[in-house]
Amino acid sequence: MAGSLDESAVRHVAHLARLKITDEEAARYADQLSKILDHVRQLNELDTSNVPPTAHPLAVTNVFREDEVRPSWSSDAALANAPDRHGEFFRVPKVLDQEEA
């Protein structure tokens, strides 16, 4: 497993996770996450080359149901918690520049 996380690595991970963090947070998380990764590294003591992964405790696979129309929420119910909406849509800031659009 790779080494500890420095501040620039923390900023990269924060960007991947879409989390805006301050410089002070980046420094603190670099320290804390590095300590946690140090602890986690003890998994390397184990030889798992012939061990299958367990992503889930149950042996359930796909669960199917009939493909039939059933009642669902109205768009008003689905949009009721939206911070901003426009008619039947969630409204967000412009994604593309005018020229690109």
Binding site: M1, V13, V40, L43, L46, T48, V51, P53
Partner: peptide
């Protein structure tokens, strides 16, 4: 969220997430 994102990120997935699933 950051720890989990890191464990799943490209280049670290096998070393962290997959290793944990095997353990």
């Amino acid at each position: 969220i950051m720890l989990g994102t890191y464990a799943l990120s490209s280049g670290y997935y096998d070393a962290y997430y997959l290793k944990a699933l095997k353990v």
